[in-house]
């Protein structure tokens, strides 16, 4: 299963910045001004959405491991 960025709708102010910076086209705004992940396999986990999100609603957390197993 493809891991998705974490999205907290209660924090989202619907500004749409994340959608505008998403190079992968993975995000879209809904009619009620929340974010939805429309192309989950296209998300490259670049973190740009997290970077511009002023409210911390979108997060791309990393698991850190020593090996590639």
């Amino acid at each position: 299963m493809t891991l998705l960025p974490l999205y907290d709708v209660t924090r989202c102010d619907g500004c749409g910045l994340c959608v505008s910076v998403c190079k992968c086209g993975a995000l879209a705004m809904t009619e009620d001004h929340t974010v939805t992940i429309v192309q989950m396999d296209d998300c490259g986990w670049c973190g740009d959405c997290e970077l511009v999100c002023e409210t911390g609603a979108l997060q791309c957390p990393f698991e850190v491991v020593f090996t590639d197993d």
């Binding site: 990393f62 698991e63 491991v65 020593f66 090996t67 590639d68």
Partner: peptide
């Protein structure tokens, strides 16, 4: 973000989508 990219360019880590592999 720039530090992670620099570490990846140096070969110290690999950014594997949601994983940072040391």
């Amino acid at each position: 973000g720039r530090s992670l990219k620099a570490l990846e360019d140096s070969g110290a880590i690999k950014l594997d989508r949601h994983r940072i592999v040391i």
